[in-house]
């Protein structure tokens, strides 16, 4: 089962790096680094889902910590909107998630990723509900 995460290069990407150094980063998650989580388009996420990814995580900076003021919040709104659309289309919304992260908060991101992985595993391989 393939999982994908879009990670903001100013927060999540660094937390991932730190988690990798300490060996706590879970395997099996593919990463796409973006300059800001606000760069992630709904089309990128749906593209990933149709291509066979079972779940997509978008990770941005915590509220009020975005270098670009509100890119993270724009991204979160987009993900929320997409989750609604997916639910209407009969796809489990939980396959797509948004998480906040900080470069100094690796354990917290690892927890979030584990949670997401378990949730998606429980949903199965991406058959339509």
């Amino acid at each position: 089962m393939r999982l994908l995460a879009f990670v903001c290069e100013r927060s999540a990407a660094r937390a991932v790096e730190e988690a990798r150094k300490t060996g706590s980063w879970p395997d099996g998650l593919e990463l796409v680094t973006v300059p800001c989580s606000g760069r992630v388009d709904v089309l990128h996420i749906t593209g990933a889902l149709t291509r066979g990814y079972a779940g997509v995580l978008v990770v941005g900076c915590f509220e009020e910590a975005c270098e670009f003021v509100q890119g993270n919040l724009v991204a979160r709104r987009r993900v929320d909107y997409l989750r609604q659309l997916l639910a209407q289309a009969g796809v489990q919304a939980d396959r797509v998630r948004f998480e906040f992260a900080s470069p100094a908060g690796a354990p917290r991101l690892v927890r979030a990723v584990r949670e997401m992985t378990e949730a998606v595993q429980a949903l199965g391989k991406g058959e339509r509900a």
Binding site: C36, G38, H44
Partner: peptide, 19 residues
């Protein structure tokens, strides 16, 4: 260069050079 505009453009008319 954050790309918030490129992701939001409904006409896909904005290109973020670095990404």
């Amino acid at each position: 260069g954050c790309g918030v505009c490129a992701a939001a453009c409904p006409a896909v008319a904005i290109k973020l050079v670095a990404c």
